[in-house]
Every structure is written in structure tokens, then in C-alpha cells.
Design a protein around this nucleic acid. Structure first.
Length: 434
RNA sequence: GGGCUCGUAGUGAAGUUGGCCUAUCACGCCUCCCUGUCACGGAGGAGAUCGCCGGUUCGAAUCCGGUCGGGCCCGCCA
């Protein structure tokens, strides 16, 4: 029976069988060490017999091996266990040299990102890359667990949608049996519809943006967490839910994967259960006062302000996550709820210098939605929207929610420099493969 | 879409005021030595039409023009 690397400690003195990929060879003459990688980690194997070592001649890292031998307690071995008297069987021989390093940390410098991504198929076997995506998987799991615990139902909504876009981002258009379809830029309308069914829903799924953006923060296919909850008393319910989610998920990542985060050079976590909340106007004022750069006329936060306010909050509040509330009404979507002044009931969640989520309260009153659609130049009778409005006609409670980039969350938790480093096979304006 | 930058073995870098370049170093690869390595160590070796095209020049990785491909920032966006 196959034993995993992490299970070896429980089989000391026994004859064991391990299977995995050759990860490292160190030939010391009469003694050879090899590392075999399986899904749980590395196993060190000591080979003394010349015939066994000869089996590996000409074979490269990546060779699939089966090894039998005795599991031995050995303090000098990584993990304290190694395999002696090993007999090797080559399951899949690999003679091609890896195009990129597998057994040493890879450069993530922006100039070399292209090489990193071109060789992604093999480069992902590098344990440093593996750690990034293991943490990403865990973040997703923590998110699900938090939301299940809070009575949310996970849903799946269509990604092929009719031409009606909700505004904002550019969309990808494609031919759908003669009709024009688009790739969904978000599940926004569907998740609001589903509030009428389950009250609380969430979805983790790709969203497609055809923006011609070339920055470290943008890709054309993102993995979004979308949350929507009904029967809120006010906008704060939404912000509190998002705050509790992020606090729980991020602190848990640091608790359960502190070791990996350290080897990935993730920054120290500076977070409090209550995230500071500043209105956008306050941030403009603070920023202008502290830096002398007048941003009072900016509609949005500039990228520089996003970085600055996170740093400011880290210093002054001991919390590097911060809400920018009361976003301007002029940038509001038709499904958002307006305040009486010139602001909307919408907030951005900023973490480590970047926006990771937008969390508005929705306009839940049918006639107001129709009114706001018309103002935005959208035809409420268009088939893409009439179904949406039907849900309102048949009763939607006060509700709100957020869209939340899993890629950006992973990037920021680990402290990566580019969102593409947090995506297995990223898609950007120049990249459609691998 | 705008601005700024970069392109040298499989990988990462040095060389870029023209000639000490017959292009340097490290990792990886090949051969050999090495019984406790863990970024093992040591000796030797192979591997690059210096992104591509053209020009200037006695001479171009280096200067000029064009072209292709990256990267970063802004705008847009999440």
C-alpha cells in the first residue's frame, strides 16, 4: 500500500512503498540522496547500492518513481524520517530537461513573469509555486466554511449571457447560434434574483472583463466570490459580514499556514476584528493634508490613495484593511442604493493597498430600480433585464452584498507583486495560453 | 488608448561612452571524483547566428532607423 511522505513517521521500522516524482538528486559517491515529491511533501531516500543509483542515470527531475524500503527514524533527515535499503522502480522515465527550475525558488521579477508563465505547466511543480496555490485553495475553503456557517447557499449562475451588460466593465462578445452573447462580467443580476429564493447566497466562479488594462492588478478572467444577503437592516450589515469574513479567513490563513507564508516572504499581518471606516471624502481630505497633493476633485480614489490609506490605517489603527465608504453617486450602478446626498450606499474594502471588494446596499424597490435604469440609459424591457425586474415585482427584501476577487485576495495575503502570480494560468490582454 | 522602459545559452544575470568580446558569471545539463547531503562539494565539457531586418563604420551585443515581443505606470476597471 502506498504511504505518503507525511505518513512515514507512523511507519518507522516498517517496509514501506512510496510513489512520486523525482525532485532532487544528490550523488555523494558511495551514497546517494534523492527526494521524491508526492502530494503531501518530500521524502528523502538514501541509496547505497550502485545498481539502484544507475537506474536513475540520464533521468531528469519529474521522473515518476516507485520506491520500496525501510522507513527509518533519522534526525539528520529533513522531517526526521528517511527510507533505507531502497529499491527503485521507474514508473515513467523523463529524459527532457525541465525548461525552468523545479527544485529551487523561481524568480518572480516582473521582467521574467513571461518566462514563468510560458513554462507554467512544469514551473507549478516548484514547491514555492505549489505553496501559493495550496494557500489559495485554503483561502477558498475558509471562505466557504464561513459562509456555510452563516447560512449562505452556494449557487451557480450562467456565464454565457445575453447582450445586456450591467454597465461598467467592457465585455467579451461571441456568437451564440446566431445571436450575440457575452461572457458574464459578474453574476450580479442572478445573485440578486436568488435573494428572492434563499435570502443568502454566494458563488465562486470566473468573471470575464475585456478591459484593455495592462497593470499588475488586472487580468481578463478573474475568480470572483459573489455574496448577496437579504433582510439587512442597513448598509452596515453588509460591511460587517464582509469584515467578519475577511478577518476570519485571513487570520486563519496566518494561523494554519504561517510556515508557508513565512517561506513565501508574506508580510506580517496587522489586522483587527473591526476594520476602520472612512468616507471617501475623508480619505481625500486626509491624503491632501498629509501629502499636499490635492485629490478633492477626484471622483474615485487614485491608486496612490488606496496604497496610502492602507498604510495610514496600519500605522494609526493597527489594521491594514480599511473601508472607503460613501462612494460617489455619480459612479453608482443602477442597482445600487443612493443616499440622500451625492453619495451611494456603497463601500470599497481595501487591503494592503488595493481594492479587494466593493460592497453596496442594493436598491430593492421595483419602481426605483426602473427609474435608475432609465437614468443610466438602460432599457428595462430588454430581455436581459426584464427577468431581473420580475424578481423585484414579486418581492425582494432590502439586500446587499459584495463582489470579491479571490485572485487579488491570494495575491495580497501572500504579498505577491502581481495578480498573475496568484493565478494558475492567467489570462491577460496578451496571453491566452497555456 | 497614452507615457516610460526592456529584449544576451534551457533559466537568471554582467557587458551597452564602438575595438581589450574568439561574449563573462551563476543555476541547470553531460563525463569523472566524493559515505550524511539537504541551494552538497571538487575537476573537466557541451550549449548563444547578443529578438528580427536594414543602415553607419576599417570594425556593431554596443550607434541610427524600422519591426516583432515583453514589462511598469496612467486611463479604464474589480
Amino acid at each position: 500500500m502506498r504511504i505518503l511522505s507525511k505518513e512515514l513517521k507512523g511507519h518507522l521500522g516498517e517496509q514501506v512503498l512510496v510513489q512520486g516524482w523525482l525532485h532532487k538528486k544528490r550523488l555523494l559517491g558511495g551514497l546517494t540522496f534523492i527526494n521524491v515529491r508526492d502530494r503531501s511533501g518530500l521524502t528523502q531516500i538514501v541509496i547505497k547500492e550502485k545498481d539502484e543509483v544507475e537506474k536513475l542515470r540520464g533521468l531528469q527531475i519529474g521522473t515518476v518513481l516507485e520506491v520500496t524500503g525501510t522507513a527509518v527514524d533519522e534526525p539528520r533527515a529533513p522531517g526526521g524520517v528517511e527510507i533505507h535499503d531502497a529499491k527503485l522502480t521507474v514508473m515513467v522515465p523523463v529524459t527532457a530537461e525541465p525548461p525552468i527550475e523545479i527544485d529551487k525558488p523561481l524568480s518572480h521579477k516582473s521582467e521574467n513573469l513571461d518566462t514563468l508563465l510560458d513554462n507554467r505547466v512544469v514551473g507549478l511543480r516548484n514547491l514555492q509555486e505549489t505553496a501559493i496555490f495550496k494557500i489559495r485553495s485554503e483561502l477558498t475553503r475558509y471562505i466557504r466554511e464561513f459562509l456555510y456557517k452563516n447560512d449562505f447557499v452556494e449557487i451557480n449562475t450562467p456565464k454565457l449571457v445575453s447582450g445586456a451588460a450591467e454597465g461598467g466593465a467592457e465585455v467579451f462578445k461571441l456568437d451564440y447560434f446566431g445571436q450575440e452573447a457575452t461572457l458574464a462580467q459578474s453574476p450580479q443580476l442572478y445573485k440578486q434574483i436568488m435573494v428572492g429564493v434563499f435570502e443568502r447566497v454566494f458563488e465562486i466562479a470566473p468573471a470575464f472583463r475585456a478591459e484593455l488594462s495592462a497593470t499588475t492588478r488586472h487580468v481578463s478572467e478573474v475568480t470572483m466570490l459573489d455574496i448577496e444577503m437579504g433582510f439587512i437592516t442597513d448598509h452596515n450589515d453588509v460591511l460587517n459580514m464582509l469584515q467578519d469574513l475577511v478577518f476570519s479567513v485571513v487570520t486563519r490563513a496566518y494561523q494554519e499556514h504561517g510556515e508557508e507564508l513565512k517561506t513565501l516572504h508574506a508580510p506580517e499581518l496587522v489586522l483587527k476584528p473591526e476594520f476602520p471606516r472612512y468616507t471617501m471624502a475623508e480619505i481625500h481630505q486626509l491624503f491632501t493634508k498629509e501629502t499636499g497633493k490635492d485629490t478633492s476633485k477626484e471622483i474615485d480614489l487614485t491608486p496612490e490613495e488606496e496604497k496610502w490609506i492602507c498604510e495610514y490605517s496600519k500605522q494609526h489603527n493597527g489594521c491594514e484593511a480599511v473601508f472607503a465608504t460613501n462612494l460617489p453617486k455619480s459612479k453608482m450602478k443602477f442597482y445600487h442604493m443612493a443616499n440622500d446626498d451625492d453619495t451611494a450606499r456603497s463601500a470599497d474594502l481595501l487591503f494592503r493597498g488595493v481594492e479587494i471588494s466593493t460592497a453596496p446596499q442594493r436598491e430593492h424597490r421595483h419602481d426605483n430600480v426602473v427609474e435608475q435604469m432609465k437614468k443610466a440609459g438602460i432599457d428595462p424591457t430588454h430581455p436581459g433585464f426584464s427577468h431581473f425586474l420580475l424578481a423585484f415585482k414579486h418581492g425582494l427584501p432590502p439586500h446587499g452584498g459584495c463582489g470579491f476577487g479571490i485572485d487579488r485576495l491570494t495575491e495580497k495575503v501572500i504579498g505577491l507583486a502581481n495578480i498573475k502570480e496568484a493565478i494558475l494560468f492567467p489570462r491577460d490582454i496578451n496571453r491566452l495560453a497555456p
